[in-house]
């Protein structure tokens, strides 16, 4: 850290005419701070609220007064969207894609991370470097050849065609997070397990896996959210395939719906807000994981 250099740049004591107790100044700023907080929060959720409220309006009402409140309130849009198989098909597809990706990333990731973290062999270093280098290979760069490759493999237009590359591209982050995690588990535990007759894999299964649960959850949440929100891969793999629109994942489904029903703004708003809900709920449930992961990340 840069603590020492920072302190020396501070002003010498007594340079200032007046000395006041530290706490007081902070109190003076308080109303201003709340104002800033309020503005920031309002700007952040304003558009989201607008979309949600719009879902309760009729298109005629929206056209007459785009910035107003619902008048009258209607549940018609929600009923239409929720009553159609299309929305549920989109949700189903997103769950399959995100669930499959998460499962794959966690399983393949923990296995590889276990080897890199706790086996001693030549090439271990090279493997780790290989995966970290993967951070420099974004999906965007690989997308076109990947699409062609999936065609060759017969995976184009299928869920697996999205899931498999998603797993592959989530692996670098996963392994980078899990390796230090597995390393931190003390050797003594492994030795004790060995004395008690456990094999390497027995130790992995019975002791390491339960102990690394928090790391696995963090990695899983990241993979799930990434896949749930992903657009480029489904666009290239699914939307150009033969799968019916009812079975497209949400991001594709929402864009498709908004193009198709562009005249019916209220329905589009309802569809969009419904598409937001799963991500928001998931975020509320995993908020501490996500934000906690960030905090852990910047402490280094």
């Amino acid at each position: 850290m840069t603590a020492t250099t920072a302190i020396t740049t501070g002003r010498p004591p007594g340079d200032l005419p007046e000395r006041r107790p530290a706490g007081r100044r902070f109190d003076l700023g308080q109303p201003f701070v709340y104002l800033v907080a309020l503005v920031v929060a309002a700007v952040a959720i304003g558009p989201v609220v607008y979309v949600f409220l719009g879902g309760f309006r009729t298109t005629a009402d929206l056209n007459a007064d785009p910035a107003g409140l619902p008048d009258p309130w209607t549940l018609q849009n929600w009923a239409t969207v929720l009553g159609a198989p299309r929305f549920w098909g989109n949700v189903f597809a997103s769950i399959v894609l995100a669930g499959g990706t998460t499962l794959g990333v966690v399983i393949a990731g923990i296995m590889a991370a276990f080897v890199i973290a706790r086996y001693d062999f030549r090439g271990r270093q090279g493997l780790y470097t290989l995966f970290t280098a993967g951070l420099m290979f974004p999906l965007t760069v690989a997308a076109l050849p990947l699409t062609l490759l999936l065609r060759t493999l017969g995976l184009h237009g299928t869920y697996l065609g999205v899931i498999i590359p998603s797993i592959a591209f989530a692996l670098p982050t996963t392994i980078i997070i899990l390796v230090p995690f597995l390393r931190a588990i003390p050797d003594e535990l492994e030795e004790a397990a060995q004395i008690d007759g456990a094999s390497r894999l027995g130790f992995f299964w019975r002791i390491l896996l339960p102990l690394s649960m928090p790391g696995l959850v963090t990695v899983g949440v990241l993979a799930f959210v990434g896949s749930w929100n992903g657009y480029l891969l489904p666009l290239l793999v699914i939307s150009t395939g033969t799968l019916p629109q009812d079975l497209w994942p949400l991001p594709l489904g929402v864009t498709q719906f908004s193009t198709q029903y562009s005249q019916d703004t209220a329905a589009v708003l309802a569809y969009t807000s419904l598409a937001m809900i799963p991500a928001l709920v998931f975020f509320l449930a995993a908020e501490r994981r996500i934000v906690g992961g960030l905090q852990g990340a910047v402490k280094g």
């Binding site: 989201v48 929100n229 657009y231 908004s258 969009t272 991500a279």
Partner: peptide, 16 residues
Amino acid sequence: LIFVPYVLAEVIAGLS
């Protein structure tokens, strides 16, 4: 609240 826009898919935020 200030984290909400970040959590939404870019596509959904964009459409909104």
